[in-house]
């Protein structure tokens, strides 16, 4: 590992340890996930009973688990970054021998990893208790887990990028909420896109949420090597787009800090 990457690995580890020690945050996220699974399990149980489809809840609960693992494990990095931009704190970091953005992203990844692993472990146990049998074969589980982990890292990158939009917006909290909600519908993060009308799926396919969320989470009930490959390819393409936006916004940001002095 080169020296440059060792620095970011250190940021990652510090954040990982801090998040692990912050039991309040961790238990809050886990509690929310369990209640969410419990609530939607009840919803699909009732729908399943009404439509004589016993076991319908299993597909939807496991689908929801992986979707929420991607979404909930992302720390609020956009708020941290926006605060840095607004308060001028970034001027303090910008002259250090590390990239400010990569530093914040490495920290966000550290926090995300702790949440993702703990939610994955406890959430899987909870889903197993609620539904007894998952909709996939157990040998597929590690592949789904890793693919969703990568999606979670891309999702974290997306939110860190939203933090940079504090350059143009006074308050980014509502923007991040709106993006999260769009992710819920275009990414099928609560209900799979199969239940939406065709015209809507056609629109969703052109958004990053379709690749980052839906294509990956779909592996839960429709696992195949072809689907896995498609998810990886499209995720790679959208990640390139997000990175291009970050590079543009970061350059602008640096210029502004130079002008105003942070």
């Amino acid at each position: 590992m080169t020296d440059a990457w060792r620095k970011y690995a250190a940021f990652f580890m510090i954040s990982f340890k801090q998040s692990w020690l912050n039991k309040g945050n961790l238990s809050g996220g886990l509690l929310f996930l369990i209640i969410l699974l419990f609530t939607y399990n009840r919803l699909w149980e009732v729908i399943g009973l009404e439509q004589d489809q016993i076991g319908l809840n299993a597909t939807f609960v496991w689908y929801l688990l992986f979707a929420e693992m991607i979404i909930l494990s992302a720390p609020r990095s956009e708020r941290i970054l926006a605060d840095d931009v607004k308060s001028g704190t970034m001027a303090y970091y910008i002259n250090k021998p590390v990239s400010f953005f990569l530093m914040r992203y490495a920290e966000a990844l550290g926090a995300m990893t702790v949440s993702y692993l703990s939610m994955g472990t406890l959430g899987s146990l909870a889903a197993l208790l609620l539904t007894e049998k998952p909709p996939f074969l157990w040998w597929q589980y590690p592949f789904i887990f890793i693919a969703c982990g990568i999606s979670s890292a891309i999702n974290t990158l997306l939110y860190t990028a939203i933090g940079l939009s504090a350059l143009w917006l006074e308050n980014i909290r509502t923007l991040s909420m709106a993006v999260q909600r769009l992710a819920f519908i275009f990414g099928g993060a609560i209900f799979p896109l199969t239940i939406y009308p065709e015209w809507f799926v056609d629109i969703a396919q052109w958004t990053p949420f379709y690749a980052v969320y839906y294509l990956t989470i779909r592996l839960v009930y429709d696992f195949s090597w072809q689907n896995l490959g498609e998810a990886c390819l499209l995720n790679f393409l959208w990640t390139s787009g997000i990175v291009a936006f970050i590079a543009y916004a970061y350059r602008k940001l640096n210029r502004r800090v130079n002008v105003y002095g942070g």
């Binding site: 309040g24 996220g29 509690l31 929310f32 209640i35 969410l36 919803l43």
Partner: peptide
């Protein structure tokens, strides 16, 4: 207890999720 902001936010979100069903 200390550091309960995020815990509180999550419990509150769970409450709203429950209410939204």
């Amino acid at each position: 207890a200390e550091d309960t902001q995020r815990l509180g936010d999550n419990i509150f979100m769970a409450f709203l999720t429950f209410a939204g069903q």
